[in-house]
């Protein structure tokens, strides 16, 4: 039997019906049409569906849709206002730090989670913060540089660009 869930997604009050075993990722992608979170493994190993649940970084594939009741979910679609960019997104663009790009939404969310709690991470800290996000194209080099650059820009006052 379907479960009725009331939650907030990217700041908007949202309600949906889901089966008891549907993951938050299923709900986001198939019910709410928010396909920016990607399914790479459905087992919490690749990080392509990284989202913030009440500010905590989680894999949406490891959270049940029903668990979103009364919670606040932030997805890649919500890290910046429409037409805007978060500094992490801006720096990923400037460094051309993506090739196929499928891991990038998860990387953006995970990097934002890091910079929200640590504005001045060193390279090792960034590498461990992103260790749950697989990228097969880039070897991570430019991604790490972009996140470090974003941290520096944010320390100098750069914010989410509207």
């Amino acid at each position: 039997m379907a479960i009725h869930v009331q939650t907030r997604v990217n700041g908007q009050a949202t309600e949906f019906l889901c089966e008891a075993d549907a993951s938050a990722l299923d709900v986001l992608r198939d019910t709410l049409g928010l396909t920016g979170s990607k399914e790479g493994c459905n087992s919490g190993d690749c990080g392509a569906c990284s989202v913030l649940l009440d500010g905590t970084l989680v894999c949406a594939c490891l959270v049940l849709g029903a668990e979103l009741e009364g919670r606040e979910l932030l997805t890649i679609e919500g890290v910046a206002p429409p037409g805007g960019l978060h500094p992490v997104q801006q720096k990923l663009l400037e460094h051309n730090a993506m090739q196929c790009g499928i891991c990038i939404p998860g990387i953006v969310v995970a990097a934002k989670a890091l910079l929200d709690r640590d504005p001045d991470p060193d390279e090792t800290t960034v590498r461990f913060a992103l260790a749950g996000n697989l990228c097969r194209c880039t070897g991570y080099d430019k991604i790490i540089r972009a996140v470090l650059d974003a941290a520096a820009a944010m320390r100098e006052g750069a914010g989410v660009r509207a």
Binding site: R29, T35, G36, S37, L85, L93, G101, P105
Partner: peptide
């Protein structure tokens, strides 16, 4: 910057699924 870059960092780019 690549022409399709913004779509890829914002999640707007549409992949196979």
């Amino acid at each position: 910057q690549r022409p399709d870059g913004a779509d890829k960092v914002t999640g707007r780019a549409r992949y196979g699924a």
